[in-house]
């Protein structure tokens, strides 16, 4: 599903240049649930943003679902993001003046899907994350865990190939974190490819494969015996 080769990225800060990714080689097959671990500043988010086409690498190749991602103009990038990718952020990033249902509908809106169909689909995904009863509530009326569930429903709405989650549990307490991980595990069981950036080992243990980053290089890449979040809830 994802092939990257020799990926480099540096940030220009005045006259200094910060070399953040120093040659990443990395493949993900369909249906995998991968966690990307590493200490703060090791380049996890940078890698995920490049995978998410929100940012561009300086060097190296990236293929997503057999499509080479290179020198895309913003319009095409936007369309690829819409079709191929679902994002889950640490701070949820819901649009605060839209209710849960409308938030979930957004990717569908940008696909040009008609209102009726959009509402049906969005409601279906809200049901899937257990929040159908909260459809008309604004984000400010939801708890942190509920917000992240809405965000997950939104990421799923356009039925993307890959879910990209950057510290999805970073703003949640342990119990809620496990509930969210349980949801993510369930979605993975249905066949969705998911990448989770985290620095929490217990969260990483709930995925099926851990990739360890240090100083912009992969130092370790191993499968894990997945711990089911359900057991901890």
């Amino acid at each position: 599903m994802i092939q990257i080769k020799d990926l480099h990225k540096s940030y220009q800060m005045g006259s200094n240049s910060l070399h953040v990714l120093k040659g990443i080689d990395f493949n993900v097959k369909e249906g995998e649930l991968v966690s990307i671990m590493g200490s703060s500043g090791s380049g996890k988010s940078t890698l995920l943003n490049i995978l998410g086409m929100l940012d561009e690498a300086d060097l190296g190749s990236y293929t997503l679902d057999n499509v080479s991602i290179k020198n895309l103009n913003e319009k095409v990038a936007a369309q690829y993001r819409n079709k191929f990718l679902g994002f889950i952020f640490q701070s949820f990033n819901l649009i605060n003046y839209k209710n849960a249902l409308d938030n979930v509908s957004m990717p569908l809106y940008y696909q040009g899907i008609k209102r009726k169909e959009r509402t049906d689909k969005a409601l279906h995904y809200l049901e899937k994350v257990g929040l159908a009863d909260w459809a008309t509530h604004l984000p400010s009326e939801l708890s942190g865990g509920q917000k992240q569930r809405v965000a997950i429903a939104r990421a799923l709405a356009s039925d993307p190939k890959v879910l990209l989650a950057d510290e999805p549990t970073g703003a949640l307490d342990t119990k809620t974190s496990y509930e969210v991980m349980e949801l993510i595990q369930g979605i993975n069981e249905e066949g969705k490819t998911i990448l989770v950036v985290t620095h929490e080992p217990d969260i990483a243990e709930m995925t099926k494969r851990i990739v360890n980053l240090k100083d912009g290089r992969i130092i370790d890449d191993r499968p894990v015996n997945q711990i089911l979040a359900k057991a901890h809830v």
């Binding site: 319009k75 993001r81 649009i95």
Partner: peptide
């Protein structure tokens, strides 16, 4: 956020 969700420029 909108652009991440697929809004074109």
């Amino acid at each position: 956020v909108r652009r991440a969700l697929g809004a074109t420029p």
